[in-house]
């Protein structure tokens, strides 16, 4: 059962041959593929990291641009509102001025009409007073004297009560 003979050398040689063959056909290729795979995984991870960073950069850029665009839009709106308000104010001022102007001219016209009317009334009153006075006193007076008298009277009236209409 236990006999050591020359086959021990065969066995050692067997082992060494197997070692050499497996080194060549098993460990070599396997470690190579394992290294290659870990290399690939590392590369992929690095690449993914780079891509992620790029994507983040891009996102930041877009966000900044979006923010800028929003701000610009806001500015434009504000500018438009400001301009609108200013325009409205201008229109209102213009309208007020126009209204003032219309009022002035109408007032002027009214005053003018009043003046005309008063003038006519005065003339009418003069002849009416003359008629009435002639009838009342039944006195034949010189037409010219009468008119002078009446005019004098009216003059006095003007000075007393209608002075502001002159």
């Amino acid at each position: 059962m236990v006999n050591i003979n020359w086959t021990i050398f065969w066995q050692v040689i067997n082992f060494l041959v197997l070692l050499w063959l497996l080194k060549r056909y098993l460990y070599g290729p396997i470690t190579e593929i394992l290294d290659k795979r870990s290399q690939k995984i590392e590369n992929d991870l690095t690449e993914a990291e780079t891509k992620k960073r790029e994507a983040e950069d891009l996102r930041d850029k877009y966000e900044a641009e979006l923010k800028k665009a929003r701000k610009e839009a806001q500015d434009i709106i504000e500018e438009a509102e400001k301009r609108g308000r200013r325009k409205a104010r201008e229109i209102i001022t213009e309208a007020k001025k126009e209204a003032e102007r219309i009022k002035e001219s109408k007032l002027y016209e009214v005053n003018q009409a009043k003046k005309e009317a008063l003038k006519e009334v005065r003339n009418e009153l003069a002849s009416l007073s003359l008629l009435i006075a002639g009838k009342l006193i039944q006195e034949k007076l010189d037409q010219g004297k009468h008119e002078a008298l009446i005019n004098q009277y009216i003059q006095e009236l003007d000075q007393q009560r209608l002075g502001d209409l002159k």
């Binding site: 050591i4 021990i8 066995q11 050692v12 067997n14 082992f15």
Partner: peptide, 15 residues
Amino acid sequence: SPTGDLNLTLGLALV
């Protein structure tokens, strides 16, 4: 079993 031979086991052990 070749491992039931002392020549193999002793050979490996000596290596």
